[in-house]
Design a protein around this nucleic acid. Structure first.
Length: 227
DNA sequence: GCGACAG
DNA sequence: ATCTTGTCGC
């Protein structure tokens, strides 16, 4: 694989990212979370996308895709590794969300094309990047308390937010993905929190992609009750 | 040259 | 990311 070519592709596609609010529906009626996991020592990539209703935050559909892993993990090039599986899960969905939360960075990326931005561009849908670690940029130390927030900067521009979503937890790195502004991205993460460190769409997608026991139990229960 | 480095 | 038990703190 040619990293130089991928870097060039990122720089070109980053120019297509829309950083202003562009919701088809405001507020969105359907939101979604996307996450990727791995099996068998990394040979198999597993992508989950889950659709939730807003504002109830109840899941109404989910799809899981499994494909052979395409590429190794290289910081800054995550989307080339995870996007193929995500696209497959996306294509199987019967419902399409008005807003999608992606596990990883959006424009808070060295070339402004993290996985949330790249995937948002591919499926032409508003996206928000929700990452658990910094990839690039600098920020002022956060207050100890909950709800502490600082802008994330890189090369003299704001690329996102560092926000403590829950007391005594490490902060989240929130950034615009595609077709959304900084402020709206942060606002819509706050709008879908339910008392945990991660927003609900991300939490559900993670539970599905990683086969969490809590999700397997939920799935059993709802087959019986018919959801 | 050295350190940093989403998932 | 994934492999995994107990443990500390609210």
């Amino acid at each position: 694989m040619d990293i130089q070519a991928l870097r060039h592709q990122q720089m070109m596609r980053a120019k297509e990212i829309i950083r202003t609010d562009d919701f088809e529906v405001m507020p969105p009626r359907l939101i979604a979370g996307a996450d990727v996991g791995f099996e068998q020592g990394g040979d198999v990539t597993r992508a989950a996308i889950v659709i939730l209703e807003y504002p109830s935050l109840k899941p109404v559909e989910f799809k899981l895709a499994r494909i052979a892993t395409q590429m190794p993990y290289i910081p800054g090039f995550l989307s080339f590794r995870e996007t193929p599986a995500l696209l497959q899960a996306w294509s199987q969905l019967e419902l399409k969300p008005n807003l999608l939360y992606v596990d990883g960075h959006g424009i808070s990326h060295p070339r402004r094309l993290g996985i949330a931005s790249h995937f948002g561009l591919l499926v032409d849908t508003p996206t928000i990047g929700v990452a658990k670690k910094r990839l690039c940029g600098e920020y002022m130390p956060l207050d100890a308390g909950p709800d502490a927030c600082q802008p994330l900067h890189h090369k003299d521009e704001q690329i996102g937010w560092v926000w403590r979503s829950k007391a005594r937890c490490n902060p989240l790195f929130i950034s615009a993905g595609h077709r959304i502004s900084h402020d709206t991205a942060l606002q819509w993460v706050k709008n879908v929190m339910a008392g945990y460190r991660l927003p609900e769409p991300t939490r559900w997608a993670d539970a599905i992609a990683s086969r969490r026991p809590a999700f397997l139990r939920w799935q059993q229960d709802n087959r019986i009750t018919g959801l």
